[in-house]
Design a protein around this nucleic acid. Structure first.
Length: 132
RNA sequence: CGAGCCAGCCAGACAGUCGCUGCUAGUAUUCUUCAGAAUGCUGGGAGAGGAAAGUCCGGGCUCCAUAGGGUAGAACGCCAGGUAACACCUGGGGGGCGUAAGCCUACGGAAAGUGCAGCAGAGAGUAGACCGCCGAUGGCUUUUCUUUUUCAAUGAAAGGGAACGGCACAGGUAAGGGUGAAAGGGUGCGGUAAGAGCGCACCGCGCGACUGGCAACAGUUUGCGGCAUGGUAAACCCCGUUCGGAGCAAGACCAAAUAGGAAUCCUAUACCUUAGGGCUAUACCUUAAGGUAAGAGGCGUGACCCGCGCUGGAUUCGGGUAGGUUGCUAAAGUUGUGUGGUGACAUACAACGUAGAUGAAUGACUGUCCACGACAGAACCCGGCUUAUCGGCUGGCUCAAUCA
């Protein structure tokens, strides 16, 4: 039975959560419009954080749309993501893309992220928790 | 049917699948102060806007030694009303635009003061003479007449006066031309050398009276004044009215960490009182308790000045950053009906109970239909203004044409 829900436990909730991923991102996938940073956690499930800067999408409507599509895409693929904390960052021009293109781009990037994560699994375990 | 004006309304619809955030009912687990809390599951129901936007005004609410005085600064500016308040709204007045419905209006003061105005032009604010007109009055001058004096005497010379002319030298003139956005009231008649508010009539203007109106203001009313006070105040300014500051990251509560906070103790400046000690001593030095007061500097009172408040070291207790809870949505509420009012609005009754997120919900996909979907996303809450906007609907009105 696959899980397609998306409640608060699947999100990055405060600035320390974000800081951990930003300071220690072990995985990185990108295309011209989107950058995804990721890092393994010890929760047993993936978590998602979103950073959509006003600089890249001027209107609040556009920023909301991008975030909703990112969440939707994450929600549908979360059971294949392992235990990664991820942050989605947007780049310039993203507000020009329509919904179908965005969805396609996200699912591609999630797939790439899963492959990279599997490749790292073998030499893992060296830096589970460096902070006290 | 065409062109237009005003007011109001809608903001793709329906179905299915998968999700998100509150609320509510049931239920399970855990905790415990035994009544709740947290988490999960199931059902029900709710979930962006007309501008949610810009943050441009006004208020509520909250806090800030309580906010006292003065200065500065800012906003507003025809009148009356509405309102919690306003820069908003309603009604009215003046001015402008439009054939009209209607629209626009920063609409106090330029006879307190200061300043500003390119080019052109003679002259631009106590006006001005380039062309033109005149040249009355002076000046020069032709001709004629007249008069006085002198002489060599029907004449001549010198001087004075008058008339008709000429010149355009002094001068007069703001009618006309020309320049300019603007040339210091307009038209006509008289008047004059030519002209001129120089005089008069009418129009206009200013100041009063009267009448109407709460008032702004208006007038086929009336008296006085020849008649400027040119423009610009979204230039300084003057006059009148209003304004304490900061904002939900306000503020309150729970609370890891850390100090800059509170209480206690100590000490420090000056003075006073009481009790005691040193000393010959009422002087001087000193101890304890109590009381009073001042100063400079700094900090705060978020423009400035006055005014006002605070002020050093040790110990103990509290503390309040991360995070959480709250503030947080029932409100100057919405709808309907009645009453009062031209209206904004007020008031009475009835019904309704309408998002509350916080790394930030309100969505995605599929199908069907059509007019093929614009601008755009709540963040404490209201009332406005401004700006953006695919199209559609309803009502009222105006103009033009046609028909009856």
């Amino acid at each position: 039975m696959t899980n397609h829900g998306f409640d608060k436990s699947l999100r990055l909730l405060n600035s320390s959560d974000y800081k951990t991923v930003f300071d220690d991102a072990t995985l990185k996938v990108s295309n011209p419009n989107i950058l995804i940073l990721a890092r393994a956690n010890d929760k047993g499930h993936p978590r998602l954080g979103l950073v959509v800067a006003k600089k890249n999408a001027k209107l609040a409507v556009q920023r909301n749309r991008i975030k909703r599509i990112a969440r939707e895409s994450f929600r549908l693929q979360q059971d294949q993501m392992g235990n990664l904390d991820t942050i989605v960052l947007t780049r310039k021009g993203i507000d020009q893309l329509d919904n179908a293109t965005l969805q396609q781009m996200f699912s591609q990037l999630w797939y790439q992220l899963q492959k990279k994560a599997k490749r790292q699994m073998a030499p893992k375990q060296e830096r589970s928790d460096s902070r006290s």
